[in-house]
Every structure is written in structure tokens, then in C-alpha cells.
Design a protein around this nucleic acid. Sequence first.
RNA 1: GAGCCCAUAGCUCAGUCGGUUAGAGCGCCAGGUUGUGGCCCUGGAGGCCGUGGGUUCAAUUCCCAUUGGGCUCCCCA
Length: 418
Amino acid sequence: MAQAKFQTHHGMVDILPGESEKWQYLERIIRETAAEFHFSEIRTPVLEPTELIARGIGQLTDIVSKEMFSFSRGETNYVLRPECTAPVARAYVQHHLDQRGGAQKLFYIGPMFRAERPQKGRQRQFHQFGAELIGTDSPIADVEIIRFMMRIYEKIGLTKTTLMINSVGDPESRAAYKTALQDYFRPQLSELSEISQQRFETNPMRILDSKEDEDQKFIEDAPLITDFLNEACAQHYAEVKQYLGDSGIIFVENPRLVRGLDYYTKTAFELISSDVGSQDALGGGGRYDLLIEEVGGKPTPAVGFASGIERLMIACEALGIPLGEEPALDVYVVTRGEAAQRWAMDAITQIRKLGKSATMDFSGKSIKAQFKDADRQNSRFAIVAGDDELKSGSFNFRDMSDSTETPKTLAEILDILR
RNA sequence: GAGCCCAUAGCUCAGUCGGUUAGAGCGCCAGGUUGUGGCCCUGGAGGCCGUGGGUUCAAUUCCCAUUGGGCUCCCCA
């Protein structure tokens, strides 16, 4: 097809009528569930200080090193947020949310931006919902976050998923593990893929994430983080698994699960679907006990998750799970003549005041065309107004589903609709 | 950053082994029913065959470039 003069940027999509209803439906479920769990919504700006994202997520991550949309005006550096945990942490510190007392339960829904090559399940502007529970290191909080996430998928009907969990330890455990990993990989360093060789120094844990063929045979026998957890981390991990089990949540332990953001400590988890193509992570999260301090707050433990809405939709589509419906119209007023149009303008106003939806023809189309329009808009009723009806005050009130038509005054119609 | 595929009507797609006016289904508009939708019938609008260049008497078709799109690797939601 001919290319339009102006189009969306690469990897950015319009959500059109027919699609937007699905978004509203999903957002409604997310908000409902948040209310049940008593998470409060937080809305942060789409633009954040570059430094916040770089520090929060980690300079060496893919997101920060190559996927940020950023620009400067004068001395100020802006980024379109690539995720929302660091911004929420920033808001928590900036507005002293700890002073509200107790642990804070926050959720968000909104667009995120990463400058990657788009493909199925990956866009440059995409949408996430997520939650953060800030101010407690209890493993119950970890489980609360996971239960919140899982409950949303459950309500939507997307149960064909796998929850993977792991513990990535705290700095002490990780230092011990890092040394062990380097000791393990050092003898075969030259045989590793180029990218893994780079990661050997900077972040050897990410080698485990590698999908390069030449790395696989080494990764298989590499030491596991779970064997290097100190007492506190091991205990925490055991309790998380215990409480998950108590909650009836089925999970798979994956000792090689490493998340791509630097701020995670202890618990890490990921929800996988085999129905979204090669980008199979529906959502993920974990504990980040060091982040709040990293962005300038007091040391504050926290745990959270983020899920991709587009991927959720792809999975639902693949599994035939319905997401919301086209909204029906209550009343379409069919008119003939200018006087009738004026009457209709008033009639639809009165119908709308009842909380019912109503519309009319604006362009003087034929009666037939107007009925066709009413049908297309899935209208439940039609009112026919012409000169005769205006004179008598009696209008044909048509039930579009069975084509029955009875004469009614407007007052009677309003009564029926009420 | 790398690889593969694709581009003809609003949508899904035929088609031209290079040859006068480029097709279908669906959708849209109108008529059949001078005031009645969904089914049916008839008609109509709508394409410089993504853009630029090359080869040729002739290009939507072949070649090159470019733009846009899709998928994959990497990584992530």
C-alpha cells in the first residue's frame, strides 16, 4: 500500500477503535485487582532524569547502554523511561512516602520506551503494568507481589503460564558467587563467545543468560548462585518458596534465572508463556533492597514486578481468550427533516442524562442509511422521528434485535430505558 | 548492531513469461423499498502497483538504490 505522508515512528503503534476496548478491559481488571490488594496508583512522568535511569538500572545493562531514548535541553538530560521501578523509587524518595507510615503498596500502568529493533512482542513504545511494595524485607511481601501479579492473569483467564523463581542473593552472596564463577570460567575463557568474555569481568552472572551455542556446554556445569547464598538470603528464599506453596502458587525453581537489570537482590522471578512467540516473558520482577539507597534515599528494602500488556494480549489472542467487547449503543435516533434533527438533539440529551448512550445521524442521510448506521453501531433501539411524529408526539420505538416497533411518547421511551 | 522475508484498492490477496482501459472477496456509497438495519440483487466510488533511478520501442512486471513493514539473533515487557 502507498505509504501515508505521516506515520508513527518505527516500533510505535496506534491503538484504534476495536483494540482500545481491549485495553480498557485489561486496565479495568488491573485496577480492580489493585483495589482488592489495596495497592494505590502512582503516575510518574514519562520523562525522567537520565542519571536516575542510568544509576538505578545500571550503566552496564543493555537498556542503559544502548536502548534509551534520551535528549538534552541546555544542561538538563532527559530520558523516556524504559521501565518504571526506578521512577517509582525516585518518587518515593522525593516525596518522602515513607512518612505515610508502613510499607507502601504502589501500582502503575503506562507506556515505556526502549530503542530496540521491533518484532513480535517487542515495540519501542510498549505498555507495562506493575507494582512495588516498598519498605519491608519480609518474604511475605515478595509473595504478596507475586500473588498480585498472578491474580491478574488468573482473572483474565490466562493460566497457561510458568512462574520461574530464583534468588540472586545480596552483595555478599553475590561477591562469593562471582568469584566462584570467574574461577570456573577462567580456564576456558578463550573458548567462550565474545560477549561472554566481555561479561566475564563486568558481570559474570550474565554469562549464564547467554544463548550463544559455544557457551552452553560451559554454562551447564557452572556453579549455581543458590549454593552461594549466605544464611540470610537462603532463609529468605526458603520462606518465599514456603509461602508461595502455602498460597497454592505453582512455580519452577530456575537457579540460572538472572534478570537484566542490576538492582535486583534476593528474589527474582519471571512469568513465561509459550504462546507469545520468541519474546516469551510476560512479566518479571524481584526484590531490590539497594535501589532506594542508590537513588538517594535511606536504605529501604522493596520488591516489585512489571508485566507487558502487549505480550499479555498476544498470549490471550493465541489462546482464544476474549478481551472486552465492542460497546453497544442504547439508542439511535433516526430523523427526517430539519425539525426532527433539532428534536433528536434534545432527545439524545435526555437519554444521555439517564446514563444511556445515544446518537443520531449528523449528515441528513436517508432513513435506510440511518438504520444501516444504527445496525452497524450495534444499537439496541431506534427511534424514528419525522414531521408526523413531531405533530402527534408519538414515535416509533424499534427494538433492533427483533424488529418489533411500537408507538411511544418520548416520556414513555425514557421510562423504558431508565 | 547482524540476518532473512515482504510492499498491487480502506482490509485480505490474485495478476501481468515486459505490450493498449490492473482484478476478486470483504468493506464503503447509492438504488431496488419516494419513512426502516441485518439476507438478497444491481450499480458506483476508490489504485500514478511504496518512492527514485536504470535497462527497454514499451516497466506495476526485470535490475539497482531508497523508504516503510514483518520476523529472527542479541536482550528484554
